[in-house]
């Protein structure tokens, strides 16, 4: 896949530079616009990545870009070191977590979260469970311990189911990672359907996660 490399001329020697350091004079490069975390961490835009290798890259770049090494350098270089170190941390935090990684990839590929429509039965379920959470809140407020206990029991059962489904969705998403990678390798344009599926799963996952959080807050 064609990647938009972060390119520009080295301010020191004028050579074309497309990395953290100029290949000619080895000076650290200023941050240019449109930073792509995959590119920043020297990775192709794939999903099933080797997390141990990513960690190694992170540590070696952390050292190479660290502001301590640029104390005596020019203002521009010190700025570049600070900016690159900060992006490095964000990039690593984003890409090492598989869900955040795929969310980031979807964003790069032009997906917007708000555009998706959840299936009607999921929305019905989310609505119903919110009603039950509200009942529990009201029972607690009114001091009706028996009512609260009933609501709690019913929500507890729902919570177990929701957690199982969340785990199931995550497994399905992770299994699609290799499909995306294969589609990129095959260059046959089939990656779009994989991302559509992932995007829908992530949307459903968001609802389920919110519900889990809300129910747990009430316990």
């Amino acid at each position: 896949m064609e990647q938009t490399l972060e390119r520009g001329r080295c301010p020191n020697c004028g050579a074309v530079a497309s990395s953290h350091f100029c290949s000619d004079c080895k000076r650290i490069q200023p941050v240019r616009s449109n930073v792509d975390y995959f590119e920043f961490l020297e990775l192709p835009r794939l999903l099933a990545i080797d997390e141990a290798a990513l960690e190694k890259t992170f540590y070696s770049l952390s050292r190479a870009l660290h502001p301590d090494y640029f104390m005596g350098a020019s203002d521009e270089e010190r700025q570049a070191s600070l900016a690159r170190s900060s992006i490095l941390n964000d990039a690593y935090r984003t890409l090492r977590d598989p869900i955040r990684r795929v969310q980031y990839l979807l964003k790069l590929e032009g997906y917007k979260e708000a555009e998706k429509r959840a299936p009607a039965d999921l929305l019905e379920e989310v609505f119903e469970l919110n009603m039950q959470i509200e009942e529990l809140k009201n029972a607690k407020k009114a001091g009706d311990e028996q009512e609260a206990q009933e609501a709690r029991e019913s929500l507890e059962e729902a919570l177990t189911g929701l957690k199982q489904r969340l785990a199931g969705i995550d497994d399905t998403i992770f299994s699609l990672f290799s499909q995306w990678d294969a589609a990129i390798a095959a260059e046959n344009g089939s990656g779009k359907t994989v991302l559509d599926d992932i995007s829908e799963l992530l949307s459903n996952r968001s609802y389920i996660r919110s519900l889990i959080r809300e129910i747990e807050e009430e316990f």
């Binding site: 708000a114 929305l123 989310v126 609505f127 459903n204 809300e214």
Partner: peptide, 8 residues
């Protein structure tokens, strides 16, 4: 019946 996944 509609929803917003970002905020649940």
């Amino acid at each position: 019946l509609v929803g917003a996944p970002e905020c649940g």
